[in-house]
Design a protein around this nucleic acid. Structure first.
Length: 398
RNA sequence: GAUUCAGUAGCUCAGCUGGUAGAGCACAUCCCUUUUAAGGAUGGGGUCCUCGGUUCGAGACCGAGCUGAAUCA
């Protein structure tokens, strides 16, 4: 069987390619160029030129054909523009989840098919399991065997169609083993540092990067005192199934603030450059405890902050995802209005799975957590799991 | 105008009965991390308002001045 491996120039995809070859697949390497602008990229090492070299070296070593494809234009349209758009709205996007859904497992797969591939493999720490349920083939997306490196979160927006063509060879092994194999097989990427930052763009100074499209505009920073507001008192533990829409709304809604709720403590260069839970960059000292962003209001260009890790404005019980923003990898398990289910949920990469209950209602899905969650941020993805399987995900609306 | 209190790192302050300064926050760097954050580690920084005096030695004691705050009238 012909398989295209997306070689990135990193160690993970290199070992994935080796594993495929070992298993006897007819492997073709395809390197994808997605970005060649280094504006705002730290250390100037827009590294793709170096990445190609490494990818090519690995391909040569494995004696597999090597191709490249330039997808930078669609990447810009489908991922980067979305980023700017979201930040402009005061939300915090996750470009890498989009990159997977829109580019790697879409356009890149199309390119791979042109090369005659049946499947496309990547170096993700995740697993796919094909099963039959009621006579239908279902592809289950599972967490990687290496729980520490599990990257299933980044794949939480993939569809059954996309999964049906995907392979994750290193999902069955852990990172130390990947390094070991790369070293043993003499792959050039064996000791190469793991990539970080937005995939393909690199590690960026976000405010600088965003200023390409979003202008700086001074606004005020308002501190909301811990004792000022009438905070909700949330019930301990996981709520029961008998909650009214009204109760769910209270449990999941963010607090609304007004400048008169607090006092002015400083000035910022643009509320849209900040995200909820952020501590660094506020440039306000003199407080016994650190300040964290608890709300971003781009309408009035006001940043609301709270003092201390335990500030009530920073820790919430739930969140809301409207219908249309939800996505089900397991289509057969899509919830209908009126249903509820206990799930494990994470709201950011590498967060330990959190116990929560999902409530499907008329307008969308409410997720109420067992424990308070720090920094629930609109624009980010919540992904829900049943044990090690990703069931679905959605964009946090508020 | 008088009285009292205050003036120490970017900010808020601590420095016991005198021996050439510290904490939190902020900031920087590094680590962690294929998102945003958070988190961890390390670090840079101070004519201790000014001038004079006492003392072997003053941020600390005394005097004068400057600045700010409160109270009194």
């Amino acid at each position: 069987m012909k398989v295209v491996i997306g070689l990135s120039g990193g160690v993970d995809s290199s070992v994935a390619a080796w594993l495929l070859k070992e298993k006897g697949y007819d492997v073709i390497a395809l390197f994808m160029k997605n970005w060649h602008d280094s504006t705002g990229v730290l250390k100037g090492d827009c590294p793709w030129d170096e990445d190609v070299l490494f990818a090519e070296m690995v391909a040569k070593k494995l004696k597999i054909p090597f191709h490249t494809v330039d997808l930078s234009e669609p990447y810009r349209k489908r991922v980067v523009d979305y980023m700017f758009d979201e930040y402009k709205k005061g939300r915090t996007p996750n470009p890498d989840v989009l990159c997977n859904r829109e580019v790697k497992f879409d356009l890149f797969v199309e390119e791979a098919m042109k090369l005659g591939a049946e499947k496309v493999a990547t170096g993700h720490y995740s697993r796919i399991e094909e099963t039959k349920i009621n006579g239908n083939t279902i592809y289950r997306l599972l967490s990687g065997k290496d729980q520490n490196k599990d990257q299933s979160y980044f794949l939480c927006q993939l569809s059954q169609e996309q999964l049906s063509k995907a392979m994750f060879p290193i999902g069955e092994i852990d990172k130390p083993e990947v390094r070991m194999i790369a070293g043993r097989e003499g792959l050039a990427t064996a000791t190469r540092k793991d990539s970080q930052g937005i995939c393909f763009v690199g590690k960026v100074d976000l405010p600088v990067f965003l200023q390409q499209k979003l202008s700086a505009r001074k606004g005020s920073i308002v501190e909301i005192p811990v004792e000022h507001k009438k905070w909700n008192v949330f019930p301990e533990g996981i709520p029961n199934t008998e909650l009214s829409d009204e109760q769910l709304k209270i449990l999941s809604s963010p607090y609304r603030y007004d400048p008169v709720d607090g006092f002015n403590v400083g000035e910022h260069n643009g509320a849209h450059f900040f995200t909820i839970g952020q501590r660094k960059g506020l440039n306000i000292g003199g407080k016994p405890e650190p300040l964290f962003v608890i709300h971003v209001d781009v309408e009035t260009n006001t940043l609301y902050v709270g003092q201390g890790h335990e500030h009530p404005g920073l820790n919430r019980k739930g969140l809301f995802i409207p219908w249309g923003e939800d996505h089900w990898i397991r289509r057969d398990r899509k919830m209908k209005s009126g249903e509820d289910a206990e799930m494990l949920v994470r709201i950011r990469y590498r967060q330990a799975l959190q116990v929560a209950r999902l409530y499907a209602r008329k307008d969308g899905i409410f997720i109420i957590f067992k424990d308070l969650q720090r920094g629930i941020t609109p624009g980010q993805f919540a992904a829900w799991y049943d044990k090690e399987e990703v069931i679905g995900s959605g964009v946090i609306s508020e």
